[in-house]
Design a protein around this nucleic acid. Structure first.
Lengths: 183, 183
DNA sequence: GTGTTTATGTCAGCCATATTGACTTTTTCA
DNA sequence: TGAAAAAGTCAATATGGCTGACATAAACAC
């Protein structure tokens, strides 16, 4: 198992793998671990809301994306979550059965099932985004002014390049729709 | 289900929940989704390395932390991963059986089992950190100078306040040990 | 129009990772 | 000497994934 890091190291620098790289005083391996801990607590937030109603994190993800991007096709959701339709199937059926998600045939293409949140799901999704946004707002407060844009660019650039444009379009479309509703 | 966001809104601002908050032009909900996509791809990186050897993400996490913090107690690992000892048990047994982790009794307290990586695990861990560090380095390149420290502070502040000091100590101790080894 | 492709859904079986609860062994320590 | 701590184990269960096979309805291509 050859170490491709050392193999790629430029000749003029000392043999030092990317795992030992330090940038501006910050070892990158520290950021690897901090991202692990940050995400661990970030996804733990919705658990308090989910536990009483008997839903899990899979339900949280579906409710979030269906609420934020109403009218999304099943295929779109599969691509976002990167799971199989069989995996999504069970979760989605429960959400439809219990009145959190509505599935309507597409107007233009009636094969499609477009997914919409019910008022129950909208309330739940607001709570999810609320608790996670407050965590993010607190963290940005600790970073000084202008950090919002730095963090946004960092997270976007962390996404696989081939998916990045699609994610940007998805988010921009959702923001535009929200502005149209609320000003 | 009362919306505690609006309940907490200061009187002088319009009634706008945290889920609609915009800071410096960046809607916080965008950061919620970007963090989801960023982490999705970030944890996908090690899969390429794991698949051929029949290990999963649970094995990755254990190998990473045992390698980065050698001599860690089982209890420490349980607290970091926030799983039960029964869950860890199976994964750890596999890693010990296949010669990736060594478990030695503590010198001072012989009840403790201190965990050490074998050379095999060290090589694997270097590859894990390498591939994830390269993703982070690429992302930092997209953020301009000084973003390293902003991102570090952001991620640290995302961690639950009661765990933050422990995480900082853990990372600082590992960095000191690494400097002692490599200069 | 007929045939292929697409979007969706479903059945069946399986795997990885997590859980709770009960219990044991070894060792430390008051 | 007895309680408490660190670790390990057995059993049963839940969740959230997976592959493979197959079905249906609608769109589309020729």
């Amino acid at each position: 198992m050859a170490d491709i890091n050392t193999a790629l190291a430029p000749a003029e620098t000392p043999a030092r793998s990317a795992s030992e790289e330090i940038r501006d005083g910050v070892p990158l391996v520290d950021l690897v671990e901090l991202l692990f801990f940050a995400y661990r607590d970030f996804v733990g937030d919705p658990d308090e809301i989910l536990a009483p109603i008997g839903f899990g994190r899979a339900h949280h993800r579906v409710i979030h994306f269906v609420n934020r991007h109403p009218g999304m096709r099943v295929t779109d959701l599969l691509e976002i979550l990167q799971i199989t339709k069989q995996s999504l199937g069970r979760v989605l059926r429960e959400l439809v059965d219990e009145g959190f998600v509505e599935s309507r045939a597409g107007a233009a293409d009636r094969r499609q099932r477009l997914l919409y949140p019910t008022p129950k799901a909208e309330a739940l999704a607001r709570d999810f985004v609320g608790i996670q946004s407050r965590r993010i707002a607190r963290a940005l407060d600790a970073c000084g002014p202008g950090s919002e844009e730095t963090v946004r660019r960092f997270l976007l650039a962390m996404i696989d390049p081939e998916d990045r444009a699609a994610v940007e379009r998805l988010i921009q479309r959702a923001d535009r729709a929200r502005r149209a509703r609320h000003g």
